[in-house]
Amino acid sequence: MNNKFDMQTTEVKITHYTTYLYRMFDMLVTSSKDENGKVYWNGKGERPYSFEFIPIAMVDQLVQDELINSRLNNGTLSVIEAISLYENIDTLMAKQKLEHIIEESKFLNKHLGDNTNDNKQRNENSINETSTSSIKANSTINKEM
């Protein structure tokens, strides 16, 4: 499917056969009836259906992306190889790109904070607030006695 002429031929066939598909479904929908005996469509007005074909180049890309993702999930493909296949670059450039992504991630975690540390800090603060409020409540009770 990567051949340019195959893609053009497929697009021409889709354009050519679309009118025949519409005609065939028109006959099917106008002659079929639902369980109440009512015809689905009387052939007048707007069709109750339509065809939208995905461009063949997009289908090829979607299939390739799905294969890469499944191989990544199965562990049969490294991250560097996946970057190389996604972006059509050699493995050396893919390795540099991965190193850049890791460096950027470290920089962002350092300067913006890691969510896990923020959550730990919030939990510690809430425990401290709770414990101090209970001490205050106990101290007021002791004063009253």
Rank of each mutant, 00 (worst) to 15 (best):
Met27Cys: 11
Gln61Trp: 01
Asn88Gly: 05
Ile80Tyr: 14
Asp65Ser: 02
Ser50Thr: 15
His111Ser: 15
Met145Tyr: 05
Leu108Arg: 13
Pro48His: 00
Tyr86Gln: 14
Arg122Asp: 12
Ser139Arg: 07
His111Pro: 15
Met24Ser: 03
Thr15Cys: 07
Gln61Asp: 02
Leu72Cys: 11
His100Gln: 08
Glu81Ser: 10
Ser134Tyr: 09
Ser70Gly: 12
Met27Lys: 03
Leu92Gln: 07
Leu98Glu: 10
Ile54Trp: 00
Glu124Leu: 09
Asn109Ala: 15
Val79Gln: 13
Ile141His: 03
Asn2Arg: 05
Thr18Pro: 06
Glu99His: 03
Phe25Glu: 04
Gly45Glu: 11
Gly45Pro: 08
Ser134Gln: 12
Lys33Met: 09
Ile68Asp: 00
Asn42Ile: 14
Glu66Pro: 10
Glu66Gln: 10
Phe25Gln: 05
Gly37Asp: 01
Ala137Cys: 11
Asn123Val: 12
Gln64Met: 15
Leu77Gln: 11
Asn138Thr: 09
Ile80His: 11
His111Cys: 14
Asp118Arg: 13
Glu11Thr: 00
Asn88Leu: 10
Met7Trp: 01
Lys33Leu: 09
Phe107Ile: 14
Tyr86Thr: 08
Ile127His: 07
Asp90His: 07
Tyr49Phe: 03
Asn2Leu: 06
Glu103Asp: 06
Val12Pro: 01
Asp65Lys: 14
Lys97Met: 04
Met58Cys: 02
Asn119Thr: 05
Glu87Arg: 07
Asn36His: 04
Asn88Tyr: 01
Leu21Asn: 04
Leu112Gly: 10
Asp114Ala: 10
Asn73Val: 12
Val63Gln: 05
Val39Tyr: 09
Leu108Asn: 12
